[in-house]
């Protein structure tokens, strides 16, 4: 099944670092099937990936599957998928970004994950599609529990270890922002054209090359990976679009 040059309503970008989490994602993604999206998967390191790839292609015919080295965590994986999407000539109206978010380093990781993944439940999907149809200025939608803002207008700094890198990125990308809200956890819906415009200018693989290797955290020092996570939300705001929680 060829996808080149085709148009889709929705393109779903899925990064699965822990390959065992695919079983759960099979049912999570079933909520999207009636929307007939294009699926793009990036799977993590696995000694025997071929069985999983075959399973994905059987479950989601036409899906494109990547296996990129582990840099930039889910952000690195999503950038590799974005690069593939942009080079494929495929068109779509909306993107959905998801990842397995196993987060074994976080104490309440499972609760966090379930909240983030509600954006692909069948009932929520219908609600989000309606929101995008009704509000042309809506750019990005994620779980309301994870709308976050670290900006302190008094000292013009971010209450985050990523403060300096965030400022560097804002300058580099020429982002014009009044609202610094972002979706912590990086799972959301976004209008395709917002990202198409941005990532045709700032090539995903070039950005990916600047990210940290391995499963990095920003608990003690800032990282380009966690900074870019915030930028993913601000790209929409910088183009004049709104961000909304469901």
């Amino acid at each position: 099944m060829t996808v080149q040059g085709r148009s889709f309503k929705i393109a779903v970008f899925v990064h699965l670092f822990y390959t065992h989490s695919y079983v759960e994602f099979q049912s999570i993604l079933s909520g999207l099937k009636n929307l007939d999206p294009l699926y793009l998967f990036n799977i993590g390191p696995s000694p025997e990936p071929h069985a999983l790839i075959e399973q994905i292609k059987t479950d989601f015919p036409g899906a494109l599957v990547l296996q990129s080295p582990n840099i930039g965590k889910d952000i690195g994986g999503k950038l590799a998928l974005l690069d593939l999407y942009l080079s494929s000539g495929v068109k779509s109206d909306l993107f959905i970004f998801l990842h397995d978010k196993v987060s074994p380093q976080i104490l309440n990781g499972e609760k966090w994950r379930n909240q983030l993944l509600k954006i692909v439940r069948t009932d929520t999907c219908a609600e989000i599609v309606n929101l995008f149809n009704q509000c042309p200025q809506l750019g990005l939608v994620g779980a309301s529990e994870h709308l976050s803002n670290e900006y302190n207008p008094e000292n013009r700094n971010f209450n985050s270890t990523n403060n300096l890198i965030l400022k560097e990125y804002i300058h580099k990308f020429g982002l014009s922002l009044t609202d610094y809200t972002f979706i912590a956890g990086n799972m959301f819906w976004v209008r395709s054209r917002i990202y198409e415009d941005f990532f045709n200018k700032f090539r995903p693989l070039q950005l990916r090359a600047g990210l940290e290797k391995g499963n990095v955290t920003d608990a003690e020092t800032g990282t380009h990976t966690h900074s870019l996570e915030r930028i993913f939300s601000w790209i929409a705001q910088s183009q004049g679009y709104q961000i909304k929680g469901v």
Binding site: I43, P49, H50, V65, L66, Q67, A80, L84, S87, L205
Partner: peptide, 10 residues
């Protein structure tokens, strides 16, 4: 970039 892209293919 083209070579990096295809090298990600399983």
């Amino acid at each position: 970039q083209g070579i990096a892209r295809v090298s990600f293919s399983p």
